[in-house]
Amino acid sequence: MKPDDGAGCLDTFIVDDVAAWMPPHAGRWIVQPLVDGEACSLSMLVDDAAGVRLLGCNRQKVERGNGKFSFHGVEVGAMDHRRSAWEPLARAVAAAMPGLRGYVAVDLIDRPDGPVAVEVNPRLSVGYSGLSRVLGWNPAGHILDLFHTGSADTGREDANV
């Protein structure tokens, strides 16, 4: 269970009996199945034609204990070796959400049978803060370019980024 407007695992609980669970505060809550695997995320740009430029494949530092999750940061670029496995998911997310555009972070669980999307955040996320260092260039201008040129590939320094 998690709030529909939460961030960083705040108020994210592992619940055995949803009907008996009492939320800690008012609001709308999302029920999701618990998916085992490694907590990760994508940092990507999405253009107005659902084109995707995958900027970062990240590991999330998430701990599980006392019936809830806690978030302890992101290792930006730590999962780049999974890029080819995650690119289809990045494209599928963009295609499934008409109108999605700009910087997008996708939380996912990486499993041996492939990644499972958990959440799509159409906004800057914690992972954004380390992208400039990992990429060697500042992605802010490219985000703004999406709203002028419409293409996620504008100004692309490296075909593999």
Rank of each mutant, 00 (worst) to 15 (best):
V46T: 08
V35C: 08
R59N: 09
K61Q: 15
G67L: 03
E38D: 15
E38Q: 07
L34A: 05
S70G: 09
S43D: 12
L45F: 15
D36H: 10
F69Q: 03
C40W: 06
V76Q: 02
D48E: 15
C57E: 10
A39Q: 06
L34F: 13
V46A: 03
G73H: 05
E75M: 12
G65C: 07
S43E: 14
N66C: 14
V46H: 08
G56Q: 03
C57I: 09
L54I: 00
C57F: 09
L42V: 11
L34K: 00
K61G: 14
S41Y: 09
Q32K: 13
L54Y: 00
N66T: 12
A49K: 14
C40K: 02
L45Y: 09
Q60T: 05
R53S: 07
L55W: 02
V76S: 05
I30K: 04
V46C: 04
E63V: 11
L55I: 07
H72I: 06
L34P: 01
V74H: 06
Q60Y: 10
I30P: 00
V35E: 01
R53E: 07
A39F: 13
G67K: 09
V52Q: 00
S41I: 11
G56P: 03
F69T: 00
K61S: 13
C40I: 11
K68L: 15
C40M: 13
V46S: 03
Q32Y: 10
L45V: 11
F71P: 03
I30Q: 02
G56L: 08
V76R: 02
L54K: 00
N66A: 13
V62N: 08
V62Y: 02
R53W: 12
H72F: 14
I30F: 10
V52N: 01
W29F: 14
V46K: 03
N58G: 08
R59S: 10
C40A: 12
V46E: 06
R64N: 03
N58D: 10
V52H: 04
N58P: 07
C57H: 11
E38S: 13
W29L: 04
G65Y: 06
P33C: 11
E38P: 01
W29I: 04
Q32V: 14
R59M: 09
H72R: 09
V74D: 05
A39Y: 05
P33Y: 11
G51R: 09
R53P: 08
P33S: 15
V31M: 05
A39K: 09
V31P: 01
L42C: 07
L45Q: 07
